[in-house]
């Protein structure tokens, strides 16, 4: 248990009377990159949205079982405080359209009324953009609107915005599904670089992406966690037949 940043123990999630997640058990340690893969509707996005309690924003959503962040029960925490510790990047890049690149990066501070000195702001912006591998592309245009960037740059801007808050864990919900292959490759490279400093959980229906970026992979199917293991093992020698069928494309 020690060193587990995120721990799910018999975690369940529901939409009304529909059970979306069944008895999920998962332990994510510090500085690991986890990928959750599975076909559409397998509950992987629901799981990631339970971690920062975005799931409950949908009417009729309920959860059960235990889910802890650094040993603290996520569902006993104040959701607003929880979300500041959990960075999230979404399927479509969503920089704030009214803000410049600079303002987007520190949006987590300004929107929460956390005051920073001018030099501290500059520092946060520069280091976050550097960590998101975007600094050298945008440093001369920091005060332009974030929405002028290309899709891939916007997504890296969103990653920078999440990193600026120094999250305990970074969640990525199919972060490249709206991007072209070149931008996808850049985002994947970025994730590879980030894994020395961050704990990352990425949800993807693209299993090649799971293979490329993660250390550990979990396979979800119909709301159940079918298998979890080292990514290498999952992709060379899966233990479960369903996993095998999914990764070889012989599904259904």
């Amino acid at each position: 248990m020690e060193g587990a940043v995120l721990n799910a123990d018999g975690f369940n999630a529901y939409f009304g009377s529909n059970q979306i997640l069944k008895d999920i058990r998962l332990e994510i340690r510090k500085n690991q990159v986890w990928a959750i893969m599975g076909p559409s509707g397998c509950g992987k996005t629901t799981f990631i949205r339970c971690i920062n309690r975005m799931h409950e924003l949908t009417p009729g959503a309920r959860v059960g079982g235990s889910l802890t962040l650094d040993g603290e029960d996520i569902y006993a925490m104040n959701p607003v405080m929880l979300r500041r510790k959990v960075g999230m990047v979404f399927q479509r890049p969503n920089p704030f359209p009214t803000m410049s690149i600079y303002e987007n990066v520190i949006a987590g501070y300004t929107l929460n009324n956390i005051r920073l000195t001018r030099s501290k702001k500059d520092e946060v912006v520069e280091s976050s953009l550097k960590r998101a591998a975007l600094w050298y592309e945008v440093r001369s245009a920091l005060h332009q609107k974030g929405t002028f960037l290309s899709g891939g740059q916007q997504q890296r801007l969103c990653i920078a915005r999440a990193l600026a808050m120094n999250p305990e864990i970074l969640l990525l919900d199919e972060p490249t599904s709206a991007l072209d292959p070149m931008s996808t490759a850049k985002v994947e490279e970025l994730l590879h670089e980030l894994k020395t400093q961050y704990t990352i959980l990425i949800v993807t229906h693209n299993m090649q992406q799971a293979a490329r970026v993660s250390d550990k992979t979990a396979f979800f199917f119909l709301g159940e966690m079918i298998e979890q293991n080292d990514t290498k093992t999952i992709f060379t020698n899966p233990k479960n037949e369903k996993t095998q069928n999914y990764i070889t494309g012989h599904f259904g």
Binding site: R83, R84, N94, L111, N112
Partner: peptide
């Protein structure tokens, strides 16, 4: 887009 609202909420903005 609803994604903007999510982006903000996910940053811990009330």
């Amino acid at each position: 887009p609803g994604s903007l609202q999510e982006a903000s909420l996910a940053l811990g903005v009330p």
